[in-house]
Amino acid sequence: MLAELCLSYCGMAALALATYRLRDLRPVPVGPLRAAGMVLLAGALAGAVLRLGAGQGVVAFLATAGLAGIALVLILSARPRVAVSPLLFAVRVAGATRRPMGTALHPDGASAGG
């Protein structure tokens, strides 16, 4: 349940970053961002279906995705950078694993921290 909530939240955060005037926070361009959002949400759905079966899994996914979205919107309305920070963190971690240790992280992801 927690994993699906995290996946849904990051997926929703990616979609929000792709939609809004939050360009200075965007770690990657809109296209990949939107695709990443969809993939993350699909991952949450797959996780729920694998864990609970098709019937309850779809119900659980819709519930977690909806609530993750509500939570995102509430935080986004008050502290936009905090709201998307889990996603930015995930992007940095993903970037770090693909590069040799010590090299600079994704420049946009790093600039978003400031």
């Binding site: 005037r21 939050l22 965007r26 990657v28 936009p80 950078r81 978003a112």
Partner: peptide
């Protein structure tokens, strides 16, 4: 004053 409302030219990405 909130960031979500700010219009900015695209520069990231």
């Amino acid at each position: 004053r909130r960031r979500i409302e700010r219009k900015e030219p695209a520069h990231a990405g």
